[in-house]
Design a protein around this nucleic acid. Structure first.
Lengths: 210, 210
DNA sequence: AAAAAAATCCCCCTTATGGGGGGATATTGG
DNA sequence: CCAATATCCCCCCATAAGGGGGATTTTTTT
């Protein structure tokens, strides 16, 4: 495995105090080297490739291109780089968007430097470091509604509907008749108070039924 | 907040050595009390409610009802309980299923007791503790394919297709004509080598395009 | 400035799918 | 034993979906 010692860190963060604070602390209390810091992605854009960072600490809210949008671009410019989000945003959307776009870790800005240094070590070893509350948000986003109005079979069918399968395919997959699928679908619609597939899928996702 | 000291722990795990080992260590090296242990969910079923556990450490592979299937039942019996999975399985499916069914944390069995004790503290404080590799698996499950063959607009439309919306709704939502949606759809199908909505959704999920 | 890629819009045609209505019978869990 | 669940069947019809064409306008990229 790659030797972590001296791994190159870049920080992109608009708040000067935070930026320089983290930079100084990481540089002086760990084996990692902060090779550069930028106040925005736009400032980093033309020069960051030359920095050859192993890990980037990336803010979300910044002047110009925001961190979420910067993510895929950074990943394209430096494919093997690990990116850890460092932000004040803890909304489920921000977290999920960041992770969907290639972030390897997610921390809020009040995270102590020691935890961040540990996180840098973690990502380089293949881990996925997150603050506890972020982890909880992620887990909750994966969690199903524990008291669904649907029966097991209905949930199963709704799940297949969600994948876009039509009645015929669902019937085949469950070894039942198309008519049975239809009946279940009717019952699902009634329970969810909808009358189209689209609405059913929306409600399913919304209420985490599938 | 609830006072954690003396929080009640139950362990459900078929391997006697592991079960008793963790029980002893948690009992003697933390403020938590292991009120009971069971070799299987079926053995725990009738008595666990009386144990009034705050946290359950739950194995997946067990004789009789497996841990994943036990999860929703346990959650129904003891709604406020936190469940931490303790298993040898690290497959994406096992992890995601466990979290979907209400697990609050996920660790592999080689986890040192100290980390587990920390995890118990974490869940009770609203965190979502996981081993680093589990966290990585979870994050990867949320990650999109970084080099999709689709354009931004196409991805956007595929996403809406995924939600079950029809051409009309998609058009309305994006302020474009139905015909345009149709054209994009054709292009998406061509790029993904499919020719139905269902297949497109399948491929999209499979290749993490959405 | 030119070429390539992406996004937009339009017409025709056919079939399968989705959704509404109604009714019936095993099987199972509490 | 009763209610809930899962299974299967018929009729009807509107329309969404997919395949075939072709064309124009932005936006990027070279």
């Amino acid at each position: 495995m790659y030797n972590q010692s001296g791994a190159r860190i870049v920080i992109i963060e608009d708040d000067q105090t935070i930026r320089e604070g983290y930079a100084y602390l990481i540089d002086h209390t760990s084996a990692y080297t902060v090779v550069n810091t930028y106040p925005s992605f736009d400032a980093a854009r033309s020069r960051i490739v030359k920095d050859q960072p192993d890990v980037i600490l990336l803010d979300i809210q910044m002047p110009g291109t925001n961190g979420i949008d910067a993510l895929p671009v950074l990943k394209k410019m430096i494919p093997q780089v690990y990116i850890i989000m460092l932000t004040v945003y803890e909304t489920e959307k921000a977290i999920l968007d960041a992770l969907a776009n290639g972030a390897s870790g997610y921390f809020t800005k009040n995270t102590p430097t020691a935890k961040l240094i540990e996180a840098i070590k973690d990502v380089m070893e293949g881990g996925g470091p997150m603050s506890p509350d972020v982890a909880r948000t992620v887990i909750m986003s994966l969690q199903r509604n524990q008291d669904s109005p649907l029966t097991k079979r209905e949930t199963q069918i709704l799940e297949l509907i969600t994948t876009g399968k039509d009645r015929g395919q669902i019937a085949k997959e469950l070894f039942i008749e198309v008519e049975t699928v239809k009946t279940h679908t009717k019952n699902i619609y009634a329970k969810l108070n909808v009358n189209t597939k689209a609405e059913a899928i929306q409600v399913a996702k919304d209420k985490r039924l599938v």
